[in-house]
Design a protein around this nucleic acid. Sequence first.
DNA 1: CGATATACTATACAGTGCAAGGTATGCGCG
DNA 2: CGCGCATACCTTGCACTGTATAGTATATCG
Lengths: 124, 124
Amino acid sequence: MTRIRKQTLDGKIETLILAVLEDGPSYGYAIVKQLNRRCDGILKLGEGTVYPVLHRLEEKQMISSKWQTAENGRPRKYYRLNRKGHRAFAENLRQWRMLASVMEKVVGSCASILPKPQLKGGII
Amino acid sequence: MTRIRKQTLDGKIETLILAVLEDGPSYGYAIVKQLNRRCDGILKLGEGTVYPVLHRLEEKQMISSKWQTAENGRPRKYYRLNRKGHRAFAENLRQWRMLASVMEKVVGSCASILPKPQLKGGII
DNA sequence: CGATATACTATACAGTGCAAGGTATGCGCG
DNA sequence: CGCGCATACCTTGCACTGTATAGTATATCG
């Protein structure tokens, strides 16, 4: 299984992180682990990838952070979605669907050379 | 209908152009028009977007160019896929499927807030 | 005690979309 | 003829994003 490339993932990590936080507050290290575990073999994010995105998201006021000490004594910076982040996630999702539609329209037509795994229904 | 954002499209234009050329040789201006027409309302690429990508693709030896004069007297630079480009397109397609799978896994679970248009089959 | 996992941070780089601006020519219209 | 429009190409520079690299600190376990 090949790892996913940067240029493929580009612009999607923000959405992925928002999606994780959509399920409830979490902190950087856990987010990295969860995403990697969730997409084992395909996604292998480093901490140097995720933390800057978190800082950018906070800067854009989509998420808020709060330092908290876990039961194991470690300080953790918990992030949670705020209204702006919630809206951003919804918008990102819409954008994702649009992209999927475009790719389907353009690539789909000549993609018969590489048949799709399965897709019985049309546009995603 | 909102236009698709840069960060959403990021890294996909190369694939889109390769897809068009997969159907036969073409030239820059026509490629722009075709992509925009094909995805009317969503995609609005400028020439300043496409030409640099064509140059990069040629630099990476995925496509080759050949000047040719059209019947209307205008000089056109026709591009065609070569073997490397063909392989790159297949790889890009694989990457796209991987991305779709990742997005499905992570976003799909909590995406119930924004129900998908239709999808009866699972992974794209 | 040393290794490992946890948990955070900062810096610097490369690739990419795209806005902005420029050149040149053929064609139709008033 | 002059004007605008569509055609057809090009370059420069910016902003954003993933990520490699490097650094810090502490709890836990063999």
